[in-house]
Design a protein around this nucleic acid. Structure first.
Length: 86
DNA sequence: CTAATGACCATTA
DNA sequence: ATAATGGCCATTA
C-alpha cells in the first residue's frame, strides 16, 4: 500500500532517538506538505509501538497531543534528552 | 457521494 | 498570556 498513512509511518520511523520532527515536516516528508492535519489523525489512530509517534511535536515547540496523554509524551521526550516547551 | 472528526497551523483581538 | 477564527487535509462512518 502506498497510502498516505503508510508514508507517514515510514517518515516517523526514520526519526532517531533524541530527534524531533514537527507534524508539518512529517507531512512534507510524506509528500503532502499541507496535510499536517491528517498526519495528526494518522498518528492518533496508530497504536504500533514500533512507531515513535512521541517524537512528533507541534511547530510551536510544544509537545502537542498524545493518545496516552500529553504528560506521558513530554516525559518520554525528556527521557531522550529532548526539551519541549511546557 | 456527504458529513463529521481531529495528537494542527497561523493570525487576530 | 488566553480565546476565537479561518484554513487545511486524509480517514472513517
Amino acid at each position: 500500500m502506498t497510502s498516505f498513512t503508510e508514508r507517514v509511518y515510514a517518515a516517523v520511523k526514520k526519526v532517531s532517538a533524541g530527534q524531533t520532527r514537527t507534524y508539518k515536516e512529517i507531512a512534507r516528508a510524506a509528500g503532502k506538505p499541507r496535510a499536517w492535519r491528517a498526519v495528526g489523525n494518522v498518528l492518533n489512530k496508530n497504536r504500533d509501538a514500533r512507531i515513535p509517534c512521541h517524537r512528533v511535536i507541534r511547530s510551536d515547540g510544544t509537545a502537542g497531543g498524545y493518545a496516552r496523554g500529553t504528560r506521558a509524551k513530554m516525559k518520554r521526550l525528556a527521557a531522550e534528552g529532548v526539551y519541549v516547551k511546557p
